[in-house]
């Protein structure tokens, strides 16, 4: 067979391989959009994480905004701490009064983290982003009540958490309540 034909066929082969790679990367995997973006890390302390796993999704109103990075036990308090890596677009958007709960998708589904966000005050956002805050913009609700709210930035710890529901505990509580009546 002549060289030219072989060259063409080999070119075809390589092109097919590259095309397959493109299909897999673009159509099959969740690459570009949420996979490779910048992230920041928050952590949250729970009583019980149930069967939460690393790489579990973190959702706000059902939309994935990040993934569980790692889970470890707090060295002094012996409570599980979950590190979450969250899309950097949402840095300094949530107030520190935001709640995180461990939820389950469907009956057999995986557990995930649900964030019920409390939007940070404009002044807190600016402080968090490192901008100077003019003190006279204090017409916010929080300021009226004298509550000092802080926006969450990289490395912060969330305190308001709801642990996973464990079936045995639920049943135990139910029976206890029944018994009390």
């Amino acid at each position: 067979m002549n060289t030219r034909k072989i060259e063409i066929l080999v070119g075809l082969f390589v092109a097919l391989g590259v095309a397959a790679f493109a299909v897999l990367a673009l159509k099959v995997a969740n690459s570009g959009i949420s996979g490779n973006g910048e992230t920041y890390t928050l952590s949250a302390k729970f009583e019980n994480i149930g069967s939460l796993k690393t790489r579990a999704p973190i959702k706000v109103g059902g939309v994935v905004i990040g993934r569980v990075e790692s889970i470890y036990i707090h060295p002094q308090e012996f409570l599980p701490v979950v590190n979450m890596s969250i899309d950097a677009n949402y840095e300094c958007q949530f107030s520190d009064t935001t709640t995180v709960s461990i939820l389950t998708s469907g009956i057999l589904g995986e557990q995930y983290l649900g964030i019920s966000p409390v939007i940070a005050a404009e002044s807190a956002k600016q402080t968090c982003l490192g901008n100077d805050v003019a003190s006279d913009t204090g017409s916010e609700l929080d300021d009226l009540f004298g509550v000092e709210s802080v926006a969450l930035k990289d490395g912060d710890m969330l305190t308001d958490t709801k642990s996973a529901l464990v079936l045995e505990e639920l049943i135990g509580q139910f029976l206890f309540n029944q018994g009390g009546e």
Binding site: L24, A29, G35, R55, V64
Partner: peptide, 15 residues
């Protein structure tokens, strides 16, 4: 079929 596949498959981890 496609969207759940995309949400579960990660480029780095899997491909």
């Amino acid at each position: 079929f496609w969207s759940i596949m995309q949400s579960q498959v990660s480029f780095q981890q899997d491909i």
